[in-house]
Design a protein around this nucleic acid. Structure first.
Length: 929
RNA sequence: GCCGAAGUGGUGGAAUGGCAGACACGACCGCCUCAAAAGCGGUUGCCCUCUGGGCGUGUGGGUUCAACUCCCACCUUCGGCACCA
């Protein structure tokens, strides 16, 4: 008996050897094509999750595959190490964020090493180290000096309970994610990045091979809309109120105006008799929680200011209201209300009895609708009416100038100087201030005269003080740490440091650049490295970052390009003969999202099982699915939720009572028609995210200990559609486990005895080359499950041939050589071990990828499929590449076709060439269907 | 409400418009064993009048010689946005 596969004996040993020999060190080499593979870096939360394995190990397999195919591959890893959890640990457990974070990083590094991934640890970057955040600060300065960073008042998420501002991502449905307490909008002075300058460029995805949904989400998030700005004069004060509208053609139907409660003109225009009511409404709006603002079906509310505006197209006086359905943050914070054409304005007008004027006659309607008889606004296409010069012009329902009515309206406004064509965006500037300690400091100084100035480069980084006290005040300790707070300005006068820190998305917007030279002291990244490696060729990670990180890092790259940060790298590129055109417009060329591994939570059918008890077990002769907990009184038997089913054995209820369903038992499932069987009983229907509170977290360390890293890797790749994810189910691990131990046995068994059968050996070679091709195609498409399945299939074939004694020593060795190289990206340890046992040179990971040979893969004989009316009816074995005429002749002569024709001639004969040729015979006057 | 994605055996999942269910898991039958586990061999979409045939990829239509795949409508689930002017 040969030695069986024991993962513990090999994995650690090879991991150490790879590290000692710097096997995965990636070094610039202009003689080789480069491939920068990147997978999203983790937050050091404490323990590696199975989700990290799911994200990283398939990405690793693909990076390895690229490397074997001759690319110089860089596959770095690091930590996104600033963030709130560290600060929370500091407050609640009195551990300094440094300590907490570094302990977690050390632990996770160790766990990551157990993956056997080809991470180049010499390129590791950790965003909370001064050597890293020095440059995060430096980039802030670059932005500031180029007008891309500014300070302004903004409405932010303020949590009364936590006494702090929260990031958008920390507010879920209007409540903070920690305590679930309401969050309100508060006006505060904050730092912003001008991402809106890049709105149009960010809408262009031409250079990107990214998933369509991500591009759509970003497009919607940016929210470009075409329309016009129109100025209305306030009758009493002569102030201008500018509104943005996508429907300037309906201006003649604007019968009132609405300002956001926060609008700056409200105070000025409000008449004395309305002031009390206005102020009360504004106060209420200011303290309204996000929940209240978001609540649906809310009656329109608002207050009249007492002031009137003049509609610039017809000089009519229209009342000015304030209402919270107008947002200060969108457009100009004011609207012209056209109740005829906008549902919100319509509801508002109805509620307060305001005038509605019909301005569009719908297509196919003879009369102009009477506003009093309308149930809802009309926003569809039609012909303009009651609209002065626009009367008779069509609105075709298109947006912007594509609608004749809108185009005419814009021209009309521009000719008279009362408005202009405008593009408005939903995207707002990126608010990067955080009132927290554990983030990169903002390198700015507040002077006594109230102005701000940047910290000189020579003083960077502004370091976070270590001797801070964390108190449960919700306030950042930086705000009361005197040594940090007190500094001097460029004139030597006492000054105060900025105490806000940066959003952690700032750190992750440029980490792909820091990997190029993580310990570089003089610049954020080495130009020599950047010229070779950039841009990232393949980026993998979760889709949840669609409109945050993935949008920010695109903005960042464009801003760095425009501020000249890449200029040095461009020079190097040119020196090396690489054309830099377009290479610095986008950070990542190809993006693929993996799905999520979910925990399985049970919510199965509720069953009533009756029969005879045999000990604790119920031998059931009747199982009925009933409405949840709808149990008849006095029921004798087992009843409860179906927790699990193993064929005829059911596990029922919270205590998993065992029910054996007899083969002839009656099964009743009201939802499924006809006679039911035990297989149709459903269990664990509801699937949820893994979380500690649900107790369904899968610990990768335990799995690795039990099965080995290679098996866990193969299982994760094999058992899911990687881009989809799915619920965790450990049972299926037997498949990949069996594959690995079979390959092990095949190799360890040693040279087969006997000469072998040349025909079978040729078959093995043919299948092997078909497999190479299949794996290449699968990996190209990120279909990791298929790539593993292809290898299992080959193993099955090879094993059978070996067992039959049909493979001789030479063919065995040659086949093993290819098979191990095919395995290497997926199961790197066992491939390395077996490669070494074959006596071949270290390392299998430095071998070239097997080259697909089409001739060797070609079949000499193929099945010719006989089809009658599109349905397969049998096959004939023919020579590959059979001519159409020959194939048709053979099929027509076949017994099946002859009996189907029954003496008639076929209506049509269709030949489908290919690896599996087919001939479809169309017979009969009518199809039965 | 708007935008997007997905619905395939008992389960995970395969299928450039061309033999649906590859590859696995589970189950069943058999071998081995005192026995169990492991291992090995076989069967496994459903149905029927079973050397054959019918039906099958969420539902209903359509295009095509041929549809899981393309088109239209609908249902369900998941994700994103949401008084966006």
């Amino acid at each position: 008996m040969t030695e069986s596969y024991q993962h513990k004996a090999i994995e650690k040993r090879w991991q150490d050897q790879w590290e000692e020999t710097s096997l995965y060190r990636s070094v610039v080499d202009w003689s080789k094509p480069k491939h920068y593979a990147l997978t999203m870096l983790p937050y050091p939360s404490g323990d590696l999750h199975i989700g990290h394995w799911f994200a990283m190990t398939p990405s690793d397999a693909r990076a390895r595959w690229m490397r074997m195919r001759g690319y110089n591959v860089m596959f770095p890893m690091g930590f996104d190490a600033f963030g709130l959890p560290a600060e929370q640990a500091a407050i609640s457990r009195n551990i300094h964020p440094w300590k907490w974070t570094y302990a977690n990083i050390e632990r996770m590094q160790k766990q990551m090493r157990s993956m056997g991934a080809m991470f180049d640890w010499e390129r590791e970057a950790i965003s909370c180290t001064p050597e890293y955040y020095k440059w995060t600060e430096w980039f802030f300065k670059v932005f500031y000096e180029n007008g891309l960073a500014y300070r302004d008042e903004a409405l932010v998420n303020w949590s009364e309970a936590l006494q702090t501002v929260l990031a958008n991502e920390q507010v879920i449905d209007g409540k903070d994610e920690r305590l679930g307490q309401p969050v309100i909008q508060k006006l505060m002075t904050q730092w912003f990045f001008k991402i809106t300058d890049y709105a149009d460029e960010l809408l262009n995805f031409d250079e990107l091979d990214w998933p369509e949904p991500i591009k759509i989400m970003q497009t919607n998030w940016i929210g470009r809309s075409e329309g016009a700005k129109v100025s209305f004069k306030v009758a009493s004060t002569d102030d201008d109120i500018v509104v943005f509208t996508t429907r300037p053609d309906t201006l003649w139907g604007a019968t009132f105006m609405v300002l956001a409660p926060e609008h700056s003109l409200v105070d000025k225009i409000t008449t004395d008799d309305q002031r009390a009511a206005i102020n009360a409404y504004r106060d209420a709006a200011a303290s309204a929680t996000e929940i209240e603002r978001l609540s649906e079906d809310r009656e329109k509310s608002g207050v009249f200011t007492g002031a009137y505006a003049i509609n610039p197209v017809n000089q009519k006086q229209i009342p000015i209201w304030i209402a919270d359905y107008v947002m200060i943050s969108y457009g100009t914070g004011a609207i012209m209300a056209v109740p005829y054409g906008d549902q919100r304005d319509f509801e508002f007008a109805r509620h307060f009895g305001l005038e509605i004027v019909a301005v569009v006659q719908p297509d196919g309607v003879d009369e102009i609708p009477v506003p009093d008889e309308m149930d809802e606004a009309y926003a569809g296409p039609g012909t303009m009416v009651n609209s002065g010069p626009l009367d008779g012009i069509a609105h075709n329902g298109e947006k912007g100038r594509k609608s004749p009515a809108i185009a005419s309206a814009i021209d009309y406004l521009e000719e008279r100087g009362i408005g202009e064509e405008t593009v408005n965006y939903r995207l707002r500037d990126w608010l990067i201030s955080r009132q927290r300690y554990w983030g990169s400091p903002i390198p700015m100084i507040h002077r006594q005269d109230g102005t701000v100035e940047p910290v000189p480069d020579s003083d960077l980084p502004v370091e976070l003080p270590e001797d801070v006290e964390f108190m449960p005040t919700g306030r950042s300790p930086l705000t009361y740490h005197q040594p940090f707070l007190n500094t001097v300005d460029s004139d030597g006068n006492p000054a105060r440091r900025e105490t806000d820190t940066m959003d952690t998305f700032m750190c992750s917007s440029w980490y792909q650049l820091r990997y190029l030279s993580p310990h570089e002291q003089e610049e954020p990244f080495s130009a020599e490295e950047a010229a070779y490696w950039l841009p990232v060729d393949v980026y993998t990670g979760g889709a949840e970052h669609a409109v945050m990180h993935l949008l920010y890092t695109r903005f960042f790259t464009k801003a760095l390009r425009d501020t000249g940060v890449f200029d040095e790298a461009i020079k190097v590129m040119k020196r090396e003969g690489r054309d830099p055109a377009g290479l610095f417009d986008e950070p990542m060329t190809v993006l693929r999202n993996q799905g999520q591994v979910l925990g399985g939570e049970r919510l199965g059918d509720y069953v009533l099982c009756s029969g005879q008890f045999s000990g604790d077990k119920l031998m059931a002769d009747r199982v009925e699915v009933v409405e949840w907990a709808d149990v008849p009184a006095g029921f004798q038997g087992v009843t409860g939720e179906l927790m699990k089913r193993v064929e005829g054995t059911l596990f029922v209820g919270p205590d998993n009572s065992i029910v054996e369903v007899k083969p002839d038992a009656e099964i009743i499932i009201p939802a499924i028609e006809g006679t039911n069987n035990v297989n149709q009983l459903k269990h664990h229907l509801e699937i949820q995210r893994m979380s500690k509170s649900k107790g369904n977290v899968v610990n990768p360390d335990e799995l690795v200990d039990k099965y080995g890293a290679d098996t866990v890797r193969a299982y994760l790749m094999f058992n899911f559609d990687w881009q989809k994810g799915g619920p965790w189910n450990e049972n299926n691990i037997k498949g990949p486990s069996g594959w690995i131990s079979d390959v092990w046995d095949i190799v360890v068994a040693g040279t087969p005895e006997g000469a072998g059968n040349p025909d079978v050996e040729r078959d093995v070679e043919r299948k092997l080359h078909q497999t190479i091709n299949e794996i290449d195609n699968s990996l190209e498409k990120f279909s990791f499950n298929k790539a593993i399945a292809d290898q299992m299939k080959f193993k099955n074939f090879f094993k059978a041939a070996l067992q039959a004694g049909d493979v001789g020593p030479d063919a065995w060795a040659a086949t093993v050589g290819v098979m191990l190289r095919l395995m290497a990206p997926f199961t790197p340890h066992v491939a390395e071990e077996l490669w070494a046992r074959m006596g071949w040179d270290y390392s299998v990971h430095q071998q070239p990828w097997p080259e697909y040979d089409e001739e060797k893969a070609a079949e000499s004989e193929v099945p010719l499929v006989i089809m009658i009316n599109g349905k397969p009816r049998g096959t004939i074995t023919v020579a590959a590449g059979i001519a159409q005429a020959d194939a048709e002749k053979l099929v027509l002569a076949s017994e099946k076709v002859q009996s189907a024709l029954n003496g008639d001639t076929p209506n049509r004969v269709i030949f489908i060439p290919g690896d599996e040729p087919k001939v479809n015979i169309v017979v009969g006057g009518k199809k039965k269907k």
